[in-house]
Design a protein around this nucleic acid. Structure first.
Lengths: 344, 344
DNA sequence: CTGTTAGCGCTTTCAT
DNA sequence: ATGAAAGCGCTAACAG
């Protein structure tokens, strides 16, 4: 390595050390604390000096050092979003909603994954808690007690998983599901299936769907069965086609749109016709749902609103520590994958 | 508000102030600096005291305060990813690649959006630079000079946009495009169209595609036209159907798979048959490409590898300041949306 | 309205 | 191998 001095003499941008409030204070023969006030408490200072401070700050390209600010204040100005899988299209709209409110309020967002595992989720949370002012945890797999305990460190709001000890915002699936069941009944369907995730890592949401569907179906005199899928993915859905056909049901609810896409794909290669041979209803309404052939009838979850609502709660110190249960209704969207029950 | 003392006596987790290295030093009658060393420079200290320190740290649930560490060291341990649109499926695989290497190395990632605008991008960069050790900028719209200038503050690596003054990793589109053109020629196509983004905000990548396609097509004696789209989206693609049909070309390259999806959707409602009436080739190979009907023939960009490679460069102090041009080849994937040219 | 002072929690010479 | 002390850049009392 050559003399560093040499480097800064080279043709590339001179760019020395980042300016600090001391630099600007010195230029103006002011005290650093005055500069700090000028920059952060507009109005609480002589407006002329404030203007001069701002001018110099601008000129020097000053930007506060966030770490330095975080130390005395104890706040970082960044919030964390933890979800099972960043790249799952199911979360897009939610991410968008979260990102929007976070950014519009001038905070920055960091995103981390839990991989759908409780252990990784806990690790992600504790690791992030040292760098954020609050956490939004989506579809948590953690036991409520541990989530609550973690929330003692840094506010946590839960989304897509209920908790009566934390602020949480979840979809209200009852109205949409009810409509869907009625829709199916009107079309003459008598027996339906639910393609659900089973096993220990199954999310709360999954249980809720099945339980409600079960009640709704039986209340309407429809028979219902659960067909387990191995994963909430396209492939998981595709694998289940054989069991769907074997079940003899005429209408199936998929765990989510990804699974429904898989069913569609498998049906197409197996020459099973949807909705002629059986009707299919997805869940979430991800962007590709309307692109599918046939376009997916689905239950739209207001993910974007869920995200923005949850983040608004998190950003509000008055509400981010108080248990609450916001609930946003899902909506039934009829497209092409449902039709009259086949005559048997 | 009641006496805070009272609160910590309540039934909810007592959870006092986060423990610091002072707390653990005190417990062990050690100096904080020793604790710091024990935790950060394994081996450079008496192994027995190191063990005791670790034990107490564990017991207290100690976690370093990142801001406090960032101050003296000047590094934060977090890196930033800036891309036009988080929720664009085109970026999924890239995000995954980036996330993987970042996390596997123990760093944390923060993601921000540029909204495809140069101004927002610059704002996002400068804002993040105060909180990260390096930035990965995807599909930059910024002029090379300004990017370079910003890189003086914090290392920047560019991805999906070339720069000869920055480390960058981009797809090598030549081989795949060549294959695709040959494929079309063999199928008897004589005239092709490119659905491209025009206007000032058009990315570098777009220009590259068109230029290369142009050269390749003319070299093969095929006629080629550019059909402008208003946006690189499903709707943008759908809108272009009329012009595609009017153009009389028999094969079209879409700017990306989203656009191709739009074309497919519009074609379906207009009773235009793909690939019977014209062949369609997408770009990127997003997850829904194979789900489309017909399944999309497309050019797969190794986004995940691009992401992981770019992040590896960024994380390596030996390479994140040295201009370089990594290039990863795209791959031509034949599915169902291309077939013989219609006889005219 | 502005200057002084102390300190956030950690790392890092410099001593010992 | 460990201790002492200073300092990173900023904020927040407390004075004046």
């Amino acid at each position: 390595m050559s003399d560093p001095q040499e480097a800064s003499t080279a043709s590339s941008p001179p760019q020395r050390r980042r300016p600090t409030i001391y630099d600007i204070a010195e230029r103006l023969s002011l005290n650093p604390s005055t500069v700090s006030r000028a920059l952060n408490k507009p109005g609480r200072i002589n407006s002329e000096t404030e203007a001069r401070v701002r001018a110099v700050a601008q000129e020097l390209g000053f930007r506060v050092n966030r770490a330095a600010r975080a130390l005395p204040t104890g706040t970082t100005g960044t919030y964390g979003l933890i979800l099972p899988d960043i790249t799952n299209p199911v979360h897009f709209a939610l991410i968008r909603g979260v990102e929007e409110v976070t950014r519009s309020r001038g905070f920055t967002l960091t995103i981390s994954e839990s991989e759908g595992s409780a252990a990784t989720e806990k690790e992600a949370i504790t690791s992030l808690q040292n760098a954020v002012d609050g956490l939004l945890v989506v579809a948590s797999r953690l036991a409520p007690e541990v989530l609550v305990e973690l929330a003692a460190i840094t506010p946590i709001v839960a989304s897509n998983s209920a908790s009566d000890a934390l602020p949480s915002v979840i979809p209200d699936i009852a109205p949409g599901l009810e409509q869907a069941i009625l829709h199916l009944k009107e079309l003459g369907h008598r027996s339906i299936a639910y393609l659900g995730l089973s096993g220990a890592d199954a999310s709360q949401i999954n249980r809720g769907k099945w339980d409600l569907l079960f009640d709704l179906a039986t209340a309407q005199g429809l028979s219902i069965v659960e067909i387990p899928i191995t994963a909430p993915t396209v492939d998981g859905g595709a694998e289940s086609l054989r069991r769907i056909v074997a079940s003899g049901t005429t209408a199936v609810f998929a765990y989510n749109d990804l699974v429904a896409h898989g069913v569609l794909r498998a049906a197409r290669t197996a020459n099973v016709r949807v909705p002629d041979d059986f009707s299919l209803i997805g869940f979430d309404d991800i962007f590709s749902a309307e692109l599918a052939v046939p376009a997916l009838t689905t239950l739209r979850v207001p993910l974007r609103e869920i995200g923005s609502t949850a983040m608004s709660i998190l950003l509000d110190p008055a509400s981010n520590r108080t248990p609450s249960q916001q609930t946003l209704p899902i909506e039934f969207i009829v497209r092409e994958s449902t039709s009259s029950a086949p005559s048997r």
